Simulated assay, not measured.
Amino acid sequence: MRSLVYLGFLSLLLFSCSATHRLSMTVTEPAVVSLPKNVQRVGIINRSIPSEGKGTLAKIDAILSAEGMQLDRDGSQAALQGLADRLRTSNRFEAVVILDSLPQLAKGTLAMPAALSREQLRELCATYGLDAVFSLAYYDTATQVRAEIGMREVTGTLGIPVKVPMHRLDLTTALRSGWRIYLPQVPLPVDQWEYTDYLRVSGQGINPVEALESIRNRKERVLDISRQTGFVHGSRLEPSRIRVGRDYFVRGNDSFERGKRLAQTGAWNEAAQLWEAETAHPKDKIAGRAHYNMAIINEINGDLEAAHSWAKDAYAIYGNREALRYIRILERRLAAQAELEMQLSGLTPE
């Protein structure tokens, strides 16, 4: 017990004596996928027809839902609609069209099929006046069943409790889909991504049929998940905002202590004035930490170039080792910012 108390005290001491403090900030990341500005008309195709080769899985689905392969058909259509909704609400494109009745392009596979050939893609774009094609390359639902039999007490016809068999069915449905984006002038897909989601439902009854009939809205829930998958997939073309963590120095002299308290109240500019005054400190350790903190405050204010300059001086002139790692972070952010600005201005290279 004494050892545990000692270890707890030591951990608290080390934490309280840390030279840095953690902050979090929101940064904007560029879209995962960039398309040229001249891509204005896009088509969405479904290559994912239910395959007769699904065998047992398709039969299980037919028994469970009385829908069989229709569940895959409806689910894939819901996924296409979700993607179309996301692309249309982004206001990025002049036209977003779901293309039906393209059996020559459909494949009944359970994984990524061969990519569209360049000839197929160019013919598709020429026929429908498209600048890009979004493809649902495959879509599949597979259900696993776990059955249990127990006993349940019910009231009989004479009011006497009797025990009857109780059947329980646990269904786990995996929804898998794969997506691609094509440009007619590029020989390979410019993006490829896959998703796997799960739906778990249960039912019970005095026999397996009643247990199955007690499961409600399974199809509707599959369609909702599929629609959401398509909607989320469309976000790959949009910038995203994420939270990141940064450490800044709170120890060295009284200016760092006061700066910490100001920062904790949101007075970052007042804290920066204290840190900037310490950048000329005669001790390299203090000056280096002050330069590092100035890099942090400039990143908070959105000036990544200035942040990079302060961080470089913190390491190159004053030997602050934490600054070297931070320099790499800022270099990645500068590259991401350049890509983001290019995306937002519509100057994505063609």
Rank of each mutant, 00 (worst) to 15 (best):
S3P: 00
V5P: 00
L12A: 15
L13P: 05
M25G: 02
T26F: 01
R41I: 03
V42A: 04
V42C: 07
V42Q: 09
I44R: 06
I45G: 02
D61C: 00
I63V: 14
S65P: 00
S65C: 07
R73G: 00
D74S: 11
S76I: 00
A84T: 05
A84P: 00
N91E: 11
D100S: 12
Q104G: 04
L105C: 04
G108S: 03
A111N: 12
P113V: 11
A114E: 14
A115H: 13
Q120G: 02
Q120M: 05
L124F: 14
A126G: 05
A126T: 07
Y128F: 14
Y128G: 02
S135G: 07
I149N: 05
M151G: 12
K163F: 14
P165Q: 14
H167Q: 10
A174T: 12
R176N: 09
Q185W: 01
V186H: 14
V190F: 11
D191G: 01
Y198T: 12
G203C: 14
A211G: 08
K219D: 15
H233N: 07
R243E: 13
V244I: 15
R258K: 14
K260R: 14
T265E: 08
N269F: 06
Q273A: 08
W275F: 12
P282E: 06
G288K: 02
A290W: 01
Y292V: 03
Y292P: 04
A295S: 15
I296D: 02
G302D: 06
G302Y: 08
D303P: 12
D303V: 10
L304W: 07
E305G: 10
A306W: 07
N320V: 01
R321T: 14
E322Q: 12
I327M: 15
Q337F: 04
G346M: 12
